[in-house]
Design a protein around this nucleic acid. Sequence first.
DNA 1: TAACACCATGTAATAATATAACATTTGTAA
DNA 2: TTACAAATGTTATATTATTACATGGTGTTA
Lengths: 132, 132
Amino acid sequence: MEKQHNLSKNQKIIFDLIDKSHEPLKAYSILFNVQKKGINAPLQVYRALDKLVEIGKIHKIESRNAFIACQNSSCQISKATAFSICESCEKVSEINNSKLSKYLSNFVDETGMKYSKYNLEFFGLCKKCKSK
Amino acid sequence: MEKQHNLSKNQKIIFDLIDKSHEPLKAYSILFNVQKKGINAPLQVYRALDKLVEIGKIHKIESRNAFIACQNSSCQISKATAFSICESCEKVSEINNSKLSKYLSNFVDETGMKYSKYNLEFFGLCKKCKSK
DNA sequence: TAACACCATGTAATAATATAACATTTGTAA
DNA sequence: TTACAAATGTTATATTATTACATGGTGTTA
Ligand SMILES: [Zn+2]
Ligand SMILES: [Zn+2]
Ligand SMILES: [Zn+2]
Ligand SMILES: [Zn+2]
């Protein structure tokens, strides 16, 4: 069973914004959007983002410096993330594929190192963009 | 056969620095280190980095905003990169595992999207750090 | 040669992303 | 209620990256 995290005021404001968005949001775009709600400083945004990432409610798309809500309701895989990124329209989706996550979670490299976490970003053209 | 790229002056200076380094280098640390060689501005560094990434001589470690030289001499996999990152000492190694790269290069997601590129970053503790 | 394309360089300014430091407040549990 | 952890508020600053514009080489070709 997933641990309940009661979000604080700022965390909730920022999570709701990201969750409603259909695209990854950048920190300063979030800041701009929540200023009407009394969040005025970058640090307030980054602190909430850090916490939300930590508890797996959102993920950071590293190659884009942007954040999206986790698409896996149970969020068991917050330390094992995979994304599909369209290089044309910049659409990003979280990949939820159990074979892939098992394969990567069990991966052991040549040195015998076993990993506790991974992040995978795939790039290509989405259906829409490919058919153009 | 791999395409030959004759590096320009700035590209060579910056590649040599990264190649000699035993850890990923950040852009402004590179800048600091090459000022004695007449490279004075961030843009000169970023332009060289962009080109070196493009031709596969170096890779960007996205989660660290840092750059390392490609460890695969032939560099056929510059669009299919995987790294091992120690969260304690920050040691980074490029993973060269043909099974892994085949598995990921052939991965097709639920929507039928086929990818042309990926970047995978594994996190954990390296041998040294684990035995501490 | 001259015109052109192409790539690289040089320089200044600025944009975008992220953190440090410090004071205060709030939630929660002993 | 006391004590502690977590969250907030605020200012300033550090770090990472790009825009804009001018200049300089090198090879191609008209
Ligand atoms: Zn997720
Ligand atoms: Zn697309
Ligand atoms: Zn490589
Ligand atoms: Zn280590």
